Computed example of a mutant assay.
Amino acid sequence: MIITCGVNVFTAEVEATIVTRPDVLECAVVGVPDDKRGEALRAPRWAGRDRSVG
């Protein structure tokens, strides 16, 4: 769970929404320190369904 702007955000829910996109194979959402929000969400870009990692 990440707290941003005083709101509890469950990373699993955000990840579940992101992977519904047809071009996303998997993702991970993390919280990073943010001076204004407390924490901010970050989802690193990973290879999608039509791309290869290498």
Score class of each variant (00 low, 15 high):
residue 1 M to K: 04
residue 1 M to V: 08
residue 3 I to P: 02
residue 3 I to G: 00
residue 5 C to N: 15
residue 6 G to C: 10
residue 6 G to L: 06
residue 7 V to M: 12
residue 8 N to D: 10
residue 8 N to S: 12
residue 8 N to W: 09
residue 8 N to G: 01
residue 10 F to C: 14
residue 10 F to S: 13
residue 11 T to M: 07
residue 11 T to E: 11
residue 11 T to F: 02
residue 11 T to H: 07
residue 12 A to K: 07
residue 12 A to M: 02
residue 12 A to R: 05
residue 13 E to S: 12
residue 13 E to A: 12
residue 13 E to Q: 11
residue 13 E to W: 00
residue 13 E to V: 08
residue 13 E to R: 05
residue 13 E to G: 06
residue 13 E to P: 04
residue 14 V to G: 02
residue 15 E to S: 03
residue 16 A to G: 12
residue 16 A to V: 02
residue 16 A to N: 13
residue 17 T to A: 14
residue 17 T to K: 09
residue 18 I to K: 01
residue 19 V to G: 05
residue 20 T to N: 12
residue 21 R to C: 11
residue 22 P to Q: 09
residue 22 P to Y: 12
residue 22 P to W: 13
residue 22 P to A: 07
residue 23 D to P: 02
residue 23 D to W: 15
residue 24 V to T: 05
residue 24 V to L: 03
residue 26 E to V: 14
residue 27 C to N: 06
residue 27 C to A: 08
residue 27 C to D: 04
residue 28 A to V: 14
residue 28 A to C: 11
residue 28 A to T: 10
residue 28 A to N: 09
residue 28 A to D: 11
residue 30 V to L: 09
residue 30 V to A: 09
residue 30 V to I: 10
residue 30 V to G: 06
residue 31 G to A: 10
residue 31 G to V: 04
residue 31 G to H: 02
residue 31 G to I: 03
residue 31 G to F: 01
residue 32 V to C: 06
residue 32 V to K: 01
residue 33 P to L: 10
residue 33 P to W: 01
residue 33 P to N: 09
residue 37 R to T: 12
residue 37 R to F: 15
residue 38 G to T: 05
residue 39 E to D: 08
residue 39 E to Y: 12
residue 39 E to K: 02
residue 40 A to S: 15
residue 41 L to Q: 02
residue 41 L to F: 00
residue 42 R to W: 05
residue 42 R to V: 13
residue 44 P to F: 09
residue 44 P to E: 05
residue 44 P to M: 04
residue 45 R to F: 11
residue 45 R to E: 10
residue 45 R to L: 13
residue 46 W to S: 12
residue 46 W to L: 15
residue 47 A to F: 15
residue 48 G to D: 10
residue 48 G to L: 05
residue 49 R to A: 14
residue 49 R to H: 14
residue 51 R to V: 06
residue 52 S to R: 11
residue 52 S to L: 12
